[in-house]
Simulated assay, not measured.
Amino acid sequence: MFDFGCECDFDELREFILCNSYSKNKKGIDQHGEQMISQLLPLNYQVERFSREDIGNHLLFTSNKRDGLKILLLGHLDTVYPPGTFTSFTQDEEWVYGPGVCDMKGGNFVALNALRNLYHELPSGVYNIDFLLVSDEETGSDDSRELTARIATQYDYCLVFEAAGKNHEVVTGRKGIATYQVEITGKAAHAGNHYIDGIDANLALSQLLIKLKALTRLDKGTTVNPGKIQGGLGANTISPTAQMLVEARFSDQEEKHRVMSSIHNLCGLIEKSGVSVSLSGGLQRDVMEPNVRQQALITALNQILPTDIVTEQRGGVSDANIVAGAGTVTLDGWGPFGDGDHTVHERASKQSFLRRIREVTDILRFLISDSAQQSLKPE
Rank of each mutant, 00 (worst) to 15 (best):
N236P: 09
I151Y: 08
H264T: 12
L215S: 00
R365Q: 13
G282I: 00
D252H: 09
S369P: 11
T222D: 05
S21H: 13
H345D: 04
T79W: 05
A204T: 08
L72T: 06
M260R: 12
S262C: 07
L13D: 14
V171T: 15
F10G: 02
D3I: 02
D156K: 05
G28R: 05
S251W: 03
E255P: 02
K220P: 03
D103W: 08
L41M: 05
L59E: 14
L301S: 00
T299G: 08
V323N: 00
D362N: 08
D219P: 08
I363S: 06
E359T: 07
Q294R: 06
D142T: 01
G98M: 05
A164G: 10
E379Y: 03
K166I: 12
L367C: 14
N128M: 08
H190I: 02
A348D: 11
F366R: 04
V323I: 12
A214E: 00
L59M: 10
T299V: 09
K70F: 02
L112S: 15
L305I: 09
P42F: 02
S38M: 02
A324S: 14
R49Y: 13
L205R: 15
G315T: 13
E137A: 01
W334R: 01
F109R: 04
A242H: 11
L118V: 12
I199S: 06
L40S: 00
R358G: 04
A320W: 10
L203D: 10
N20G: 14
Q284W: 00
G274E: 07
L376C: 14
Q46W: 07
S206D: 06
Q181N: 13
P226E: 01
V134A: 06
H32R: 11
H168E: 15
E15F: 08
D30C: 14
C8A: 07
L305P: 01
T299C: 05
C8E: 05
A296W: 11
H190F: 05
L218A: 13
H342E: 03
T307E: 14
I184F: 07
M1F: 01
A300D: 07
C19Q: 14
